[in-house]
Structure formats: C-alpha cells, structure tokens
Write a protein that binds this DNA or RNA. Structure first.
Lengths: 233, 233
DNA sequence: CCGCCCAGGCTGTGATCACAGATCACTAGC
DNA sequence: GCTAGTGATCTGTGATCACAGCCTGGGCGG
C-alpha cells in the first residue's frame, strides 16, 4: 500500500471516554488538595457539576477507590480517606523507600535530556518558592513536576506509575496542610533537598539522590505529623 | 454503654457488593494464569457466566484496567495485556527493587509470629515442589503465599498493596509459562532462593533477604524471557 | 424546654435500555 | 477463484430507572 507510511503516522486518535475525563478531573482535585480528607462526594452531585450522567462518575470513582485515593464507607458514603498517624507514617516510609529507589536509578541511568528537564523543573520551583509571596498552589504543582521529572528518568515506567498512585493517596493530606501553613515548607528544607538531589543526579550518585529524596519526603511528613490534624493519638 | 466492647468486636460486616465479588473472581483468574495474555474478555459473556448483570462486571473490569491488569484496546476490546520483552523486563526490575525492599524490611522488623508463618509457607511450598509429580497450580498458589507471608512481615501495608498489584500484572505471563513448562522452575532455583531468603530473615539480614528475593524474581524472569512467548524481538 | 420518632429525601448499587462503532461471515461481482 | 462490499451481530459506553438503606429535619410527647 502506498499510503501505509502516512497512515502509520496519524496519532491513533486517543479514545477518551467521559469516564477518563471524569477520572482526571477528580484526580486533579485530589492531587491539588482541593478535596480534603474526610470530605464526602456524591455521585449525582458530581455528575451534575461535570455535566454528565452518573455512569462516568461511577467508573472514575470506582477506579479511585481501587487505588485507595477514595473510600466508600460502610454507610455507602464516598469520602476521601482520613489517615491515622500510623497509617500516614507507613505511607511516608513507603514513599521514602520507593521514591528513593527511583531517584537512585535516575541518578545512575539519566540521559542528558532527562538531566536538562530536571534542571528546568528545579529552577522553576526555586523561582516560585523564593518569591516573597509564593503562590502555594503553583508551588505544589511545580514540586510535583520536579519529582516526576526525576522519576521519569529512572527508566522504569511501572515504578513511575506506582509513585503516581502513592502521590494520589498522600496528596490530600499533604496539600491540605500546605494550604493551611504555606509559610514553612516552601522556604527552607524542600529547596535544600532538591538541590542535593540535583547535585547527586548530576554526579550519577545513586545513594546520594536516594538520600536527598527520602529526606525531602521524611521532613515534610515529620512537619505534617507535628502539626497534628491526623486522627488517633 | 455496657455493650460497647461487645459491639466493637463484631466483624463490622463487610459490605460485599456484587462488584467486589466479580473483581475477586477475575483477579483469581488472572493471578492463576487462567487468563492468558492476549485473551479477550466480554462484559456480557462474563456477566452471563457469573450470573449477574453487566454492571458489576463493568466496575470490576474498570478497576482492573486502572491497575493495569487488564487493558481496553482502541477498538473497545477488553484484553489481558500482552507485554513486550522490554516491558516485561521493566516490570521484573521494578519487582526486584520493590519486593527487595519489602524483604529487607521484613528481615529487620519481623516478629516471631511472622517468622513462624514464613517457615510454615516455605515448608508447604517445598513439600509440593519436591514431589515427583508436582501440582503446578498448587505450587503457584503456595509460592504466592510464601512471598506474601514475607511481605506481610515488612510492616508497611501500602508496600504490600503495591506488590499485590505488581503480581496482578505479572501473573498472567508468569503462570502461563509455568503451565506450559512446569518442570523447571519448581525443582531448582526457586527452592534455593526461598531457602536463602528464609535464612536471611531468620538472621535479620536485610541485604541478604533482598538479594535472595531479587534473585528469585530475576531468575524466573530470565527463564521466561529465554523461552520467548513475548512480543517484539 | 428537651428528647425521641418518623417521614421524606438523600445515598450507592444493580438492572435495563439505547447507541455508535467494530468485527466477521457471507455474497455478489470481476 | 479471489477480492471487495455489506449487513447481522456483538462490543463498550452512556443514560435512565428501580430499590434498599441511611441521614436528617420537623413535629410530637414528655
């Protein structure tokens, strides 16, 4: 066929269902901390807001429930999960371990393109975080971009997906806290840890990169746990 | 209330929806290798087989698709994903890293109860694997029990869930191969690596446990990749 | 004035219907 | 004999309806 090469190049039109769109919308709300732990969610109300029927919302919610980003209580109420202190600590430790691995591999296997992208996102985060009046919502997004630029360089797509799901679970509690207390995290520790990670990745120092990322996660978690706001004692 | 302690003990009756049941049924089929990579799945046919309407199947399938255990092709056909060689290698490397961490933590933090359970499952697997005519289906189940007995001892529930999802993705290709060639894996390497892991966990040797588990996973993956059966070259 | 109770409206779950698109077997035409 | 068209059938997706259970607010009895 003479047109085979041309046909092979068209972007195979992604089949976006309404369920996918709804899933993305809810994911963004969750990752941005717009939905706080304990908030209830109604299928019908969400469907009305998004202008669709309940079916796409049902599918999106069932996905998020499967991922642990939402939960359905025995009363059949959909809520964003509230974590106990020990649950949050376990999640943070898991993140330190898994994201540490990803950072180590990223340092060892990075290409120059990946390094450039990491540099770019680090600079963007730094510019926002160093402003006198930082936009916390933007800082959250840029922090996420930086972390995932690193994880994209690790060469293991499954690992990247795992981390994305972990962020979906941790997002509400972290970003909710960041909204309430935007003054602290942005200024000090995160910037330092990011710089350490960047240097380690440049030097192909896997252990150093893992330590920097783990410290970044651990310090943020420690700060949030000291703030209270989590269930239990 | 005088009955509060008694009420707290009743098993909070798990609300099992038909969707949950369907999800479990499909998960078992996947984990057991009864569904091979490339197999198609029909919502209506599955619903008919399970004796429910399509709705519960839809929910279960959407969950499995979200986890990557199933995929829906652009043609709107639900299939169990076929992996390319490089995808399978990336998955295996991710498993080696993540399950290695879990094994290391299990070795360091295990309780005596966990150790006893690991001993028990290892013995059960050994008994089945050393038989002259091993039941491969049972060996698969017991191997799974052993691995997850270890991961349960790591003290991080989120990590355990991550690993469960990884097994859901790897299950079809691994177990399909094991069905086709049951003679090899059972006899030799797995038993040795399991014994190494057990000794390391007994000795609270985290690095040793991680190495043993990683070797177990890596050797199985290497064997499967040498067998072919995966797409690409 | 406070506490209980019951009815109405909400919830998620499941079933059924409607529809666009893809697949596949069959047939007509070269 | 073989290819190309074509219609029946099956696919997932989305909407709508039905239903049992919870939650809550207003009214009644103490």
């Amino acid at each position: 066929m003479s047109s085979s090469s041309a046909l092979a190049e068209l972007p195979q039109l992604d089949r976006r269902t309404l369920g996918d769109t709804t899933y993305e919308a809810l994911s963004d709300l969750l990752a941005a901390g717009r939905l706080a732990p304990g908030d209830r969610l109604s299928l019908r109300r969400s469907a009305a807001v998004l202008g669709v029927s309940v079916m796409p919302v049902r599918e999106a919610v069932s996905r998020l429930v499967a991922e642990g980003a939402l939960e359905v209580s025995p009363n059949r109420a959909i809520r964003v999960p509230t974590m106990t202190r020990v649950e949050f600590r376990a999640l943070a430790e898991t993140r330190m371990a898994v994201e540490g691995i990803a950072a180590a591999r990223a340092a060892e296997q990075r290409s120059e393109e990946h390094l450039a992208e990491i540099h770019r996102t680090e600079a963007a985060f730094r510019r926002t975080a160093e402003r006198a009046d930082p936009d916390s919502a933007m800082a959250v997004a840029l922090n996420r971009d930086l972390h995932f630029a690193i994880y994209a360089a690790c060469g293991l797509p499954p690992l990247r997906e795992i981390i994305a799901r972990l962020w979906l679970k941790a997002g509400p509690v972290i970003n909710l806290d960041l909204r309430a207390h935007p003054e602290r995290l942005l200024q000090g520790f995160a910037l330092r840890r990011h710089a350490e990670a960047l240097r380690a990745i440049e030097a192909r120092d896997g252990a150093g990169a893992a330590a920097a990322i783990a410290a970044d996660i651990g310090e943020a978690a420690e700060f949030i746990m000291s703030r209270g706001g989590l269930r239990d004692g």
